[in-house]
Amino acid sequence: MAVPTAHLTHIRNQLEKCRNKLAQGSLTRDDLQTIIDALDEAERHVQDILYIQAASTALESPVLGMSLYANGRRIPLPSNRTELPYQSVIEAMRDGWHIISFPNTALVMDDSITYGLGCEFILEK
């Protein structure tokens, strides 16, 4: 996963501090915790991705399927529609998600061949 340069610099500085404290015999548990915290912070900056398969290209159309990657991990979701975190693309947008890919209509120009699972939007945070 890609970690922003600023976070890498911060973690490196913390490690150097710990190395110096280790040499001086003053390294503490809290010093090491600061590095763990810095790693957690960096992880939170991984791009989150939300795939939504919708019944139509309209942002208000009902969700048919959904996949979520957060903090670099796939997050299990229920298959019951009412338990999904969003019922439509517009609901996800209102919660801060940004669309980065719209359904590719070039794939469905031939209606006699049905492709895939509805109209897929890809969003990020």
Partner: peptide, 18 residues
């Protein structure tokens, strides 16, 4: 009845009515 290669399904997870 739906056409899609398995290679293009790998990102799918929760599907309503499954």
């Amino acid at each position: 009845h739906l056409s899609m290669s398995s290679h293009f399904m790998k990102h799918l997870d929760s599907i309503v009515d499954a």
